[in-house]
Design a protein around this nucleic acid. Structure first.
Length: 291
DNA sequence: ATCGGTCAAGGGGCA
DNA sequence: TGCCCCTTGACCGAT
């Protein structure tokens, strides 16, 4: 069981996701930005080591515009040594690593150009993990995508597209239940057809549930992860009280978290804490010996 | 130096 | 149809 937080460490005075405007794109600027992003990523790894947080989500902005047509720079080659040494550090300390493309990456889109751009973006994410020589437990986590007024058809489109993608992406791709469209049940239906692992998100499940209890949902998704995929990935967050449903809380509610652990005790998984104050919440969990 | 409008990009939900 | 929300702050031009 490993625990971590996504993309940004607020205790450090650096970010690994620094970017710039498309208008000001230049190869020089890209190189500089990626260098400083990699510096920061290494500092995050060191911080995590010291604090025993062995699950890390790498920001999609590590190499800005990498999947955009404007970028013809061979960043993999240029940063190959650094990327592989970062990967070595991950492996030496048995880190779990993941990435999570944003809302613009929609594999099952009914628009062809969106679909193709999504493939490019998934390719980029796979390239980052490949350049670090990470095994297939390093995952790229996405949502199923749009519904377009016909969920069955849209699920089928996801399945067909999945079958068509390259091995390089396929070996890392996992799907997560989302808060309005595709529930755990929907993800499991898809997984049954193509064997893709399913990430469980407790907050999304509480908003967009199926007939599954948390215990049953976790039990079912656990079976979608094979040995080569590593332990299941679970996302935990709590609702920001009084705000729009789905908004992430500012800091962790330890009582709520204990309740969650209570229900999930019998399962093995790696846990990503998606809460605004990031590593501080994880620290609270560890300090209270909850994980 | 500070401020705030804007940022590559999709989709869903509501008035 | 058009606007807002999510992701999420950071960038950068105007002052």
């Amino acid at each position: 069981m490993r625990i971590g937080y996504p993309c940004i460490n607020r205790s450090l005075d650096c970010i690994a996701s620094s970017t710039f405007r498309l208008k000001s794109y230049s190869e020089e600027k890209l190189k500089k930005t990626v260098e400083s992003n990699l510096d920061c990523l290494e500092r995050m790894i060191d911080y995590n080591l010291e604090n025993r947080m062995f699950f890390l989500r790498i920001t999609s902005d590590l190499v800005p515009f990498a999947s955009h047509e404007v970028c013809d720079f061979d960043w993999q080659k240029h940063f190959s040594e650094r990327l592989s040494s970062i990967g070595e550090k991950f492996r030496d300390h048995n880190f779990r690593v993941s990435m999570h493309p944003g809302q613009y990456t929609v594999l099952n889109s009914n628009k062809n150009d969106v679909y193709h751009k999504s493939i490019n973006d998934l390719e980029y994410h796979a390239d980052v993990l490949d350049a670090m020589n990470l095994d297939t437990t390093a995952k790229i986590n996405i949502h199923v995508g749009g519904v377009y007024d016909d969920k069955e058809k849209s699920k089928m489109r996801f399945i067909k597209r999945y079958k068509d993608i390259s091995k390089k992406i396929k070996r890392r791709l996992v799907i997560e239940n989302d808060e309005k469209s595709y529930s755990v049940k929907d993800c499991l239906d898809i997984s049954k057809e193509i064997g893709i692992p399913v990430t469980f998100d407790n907050l999304h499940h509480s908003i967009n549930g199926s007939h599954y209890s948390v215990e049953d949902a976790l039990g079912e998704v656990s079976r979608t992860w094979n040995h080569k995929d590593g332990p299941p990935i679970v996302h935990y967050s709590s609702q920001l009280t009084g705000k729009r449903t789905g908004r992430h809380a500012d800091t962790i509610d330890l009582e709520d978290f204990e309740g969650f652990l209570e229900k999930t005790r019998k399962y093995d998984f790696d846990l990503m804490i998606e809460i605004k104050d990031k590593e501080k919440s994880v620290k609270k969990i560890i300090e209270n010996s909850l994980f």
